[in-house]
């Protein structure tokens, strides 16, 4: 009884098949909450509420405790995230090289603040402490692509570039 079989769980608007698949994978692993939540975030891009209820029921963990774990770690997101995650380094080296202006420019042009997502779910913006490439300061990343020696002008170019790209995978 402690681990409920999948078919007992209700399906809401969100397709829970992906989450069920992740849970199936780790069902018998001791301490499986973290890998399950990470797997779910991998699949959906964030951790949707129905999946938390699903995890709670199938792993027999209180939803409140799952929520506690999700809010403790910065790596988990409870709201949908943009297709393109823009991260700007505000570490010491980048700060000295003008990162604050880069950040301000992104804020202005995207109309969102730190850790926010544009309504069209295209961009999420985050300030980060260090990306580990201080030689390229000031530094920005969009998903896995790196943009070194950032300038205010390059901010506009990057946004223009990614605004053209398709939203589908």
């Amino acid at each position: 009884m402690s681990n409920a079989p999948a078919e007992e769980i209700p399906t809401a608007d969100i397709d829970l098949a992906l989450a069920n698949h992740v849970i199936d994978k780790y069902l018998t692993l001791p301490g499986n909450l973290m890998p399950v939540l990470q797997g779910i975030q991998e699949e959906y891009g964030y951790v949707p509420k129905p999946t938390i209820d699903l995890v709670a029921e199938r792993l027999n963990i209180y939803p409140s405790q799952i929520y506690g774990v999700l809010t403790f770690y910065a790596q988990f997101h409870l709201k949908p995230r943009g297709k393109f995650i823009i991260r700007v380094c505000v570490g010491t080296a980048c700060h000295v090289q003008g990162a604050p202006r880069i950040v301000e420019t992104f804020f202005d042009k995207l109309g969102i603040g730190h850790a926010e997502t544009t309504p069209d779910l295209r961009f999420t913006f985050e300030k980060v402490a260090c990306l580990g490439a201080c030689g390229m300061a000031p530094l920005a990343m969009v998903n896995d692509s790196t943009y070194g020696s950032m300038t205010v002008q390059k901010v506009g170019e990057i946004i223009a570039d990614y605004s053209q790209r398709p939203m589908k995978k």
Binding site: Y62, P63, S64, Q65, Y67, G68, T71, F72
Partner: peptide, 10 residues
Amino acid sequence: SYGAYTFMNR
């Protein structure tokens, strides 16, 4: 054994 509460955030 209801688990209504948790420590949240950091």
